[in-house]
Design a protein around this nucleic acid. Sequence first.
DNA 1: GAGATAGGAAACGCAATGTCTCTTAATGAG
DNA 2: CTCATTAAGAGACATTGCGTTTCCTATCTC
Lengths: 201, 201
Amino acid sequence: MSLNERSDAGPQRRRRGAALEGALLDAAWAELVATGYEAMTYDAVAERASTSRAVLYRRWPSKRDLAAAAVARVVATIPFDTPDTGSLRDDVVALLHAANDTRARIAVQLAVRLDGTGDDALTLADLRTTVAERSNTRMITLLERAAERGEIATADLPRRVRNVAFDLLGYQILATQRAATPAEIEEIVDDVLLPLLRAPR
Amino acid sequence: MSLNERSDAGPQRRRRGAALEGALLDAAWAELVATGYEAMTYDAVAERASTSRAVLYRRWPSKRDLAAAAVARVVATIPFDTPDTGSLRDDVVALLHAANDTRARIAVQLAVRLDGTGDDALTLADLRTTVAERSNTRMITLLERAAERGEIATADLPRRVRNVAFDLLGYQILATQRAATPAEIEEIVDDVLLPLLRAPR
DNA sequence: GAGATAGGAAACGCAATGTCTCTTAATGAG
DNA sequence: CTCATTAAGAGACATTGCGTTTCCTATCTC
């Protein structure tokens, strides 16, 4: 007969500080993934985190604050390495696949949904800026490598051009409410980005 | 002492049928514009339309249905003519300006937000398809004219290329939660679309 | 006129939000 | 170790919006 130590363990201990906050945001994230933003409730998050709603309200005065904090924390964990395949096409395809990750997708969808005004708008602007800057710097690196290899004439391109692949992926995700398929990613790169980069200027 | 005829007028008359439905959707649209989807309530719409919530529920069983119907009705009123300026660049800029209209913007934002499943997903898919098809057919016309004028080599282009301007505009609107500026529209056309159309294939 | 339909009003129940009070676990200082 | 402070967790309460139902009666057709 097995002895379940967990259910017979000593009295429950209260979490405090960072450990508690981590557990709260984990629960909020799990609820977002499981049911979406619309259906997420303070009650559900509190129950999932084994806490009371007052604990949540003490930190995040609104549902959007809580959701934004949960997503911001998860976005920071996305492995967003800079690929180096030796070919620009394959580099960008790999980078777009990383951006197609569930975490990034939910972040994009949420950022668009929460068109906040007031204090929380700063959090959302930060979230969008963070995602944009991370993709932007990596795209610049890929373009510079390609220029060095002679694949493209120059890496000195308008911002619109540098961003076009990510913007199209972002729109794809938002318009379809699902992750992009590998074929869709290749379309973006093969039909739009590569011809655009090779266009005479 | 003034006599206020309106308050002393005969008994209020009930609206019926199409007249009532128009008034309901007008009110829903006004509420969407004034406060956004999140803050829109059945109570507010009913009050704005001087009706009861039951009247709304008899037609639209959920908030999203009501919002979608209001937006679909307004989208149909957008003057979405096909420009003919004699220059592809100016044609596309004009077309993007039309798509930047408040009505279209709110439609795009709402379509993305209401990631429906079940019966109402059809309404939303229709809304997205309607907007996409209208822009798509006009873009094809502009491209064909440009090819005839010799501005571009061919109008026979991948779907991704034909759609790139509208996709980028859509993403611009969603990412910033505001209408695109004229400069942003020109960027899309001058930095991305035109070079892409002239790229060798 | 009668009968059918549906608009409008009011009431009800439920769930989620938002708030408050109280008990007590947990931590740090002395 | 004790004591004081902080805040976690529980529970209760009020409000609001959603969703529904019932009833009265305006409106239309025959």
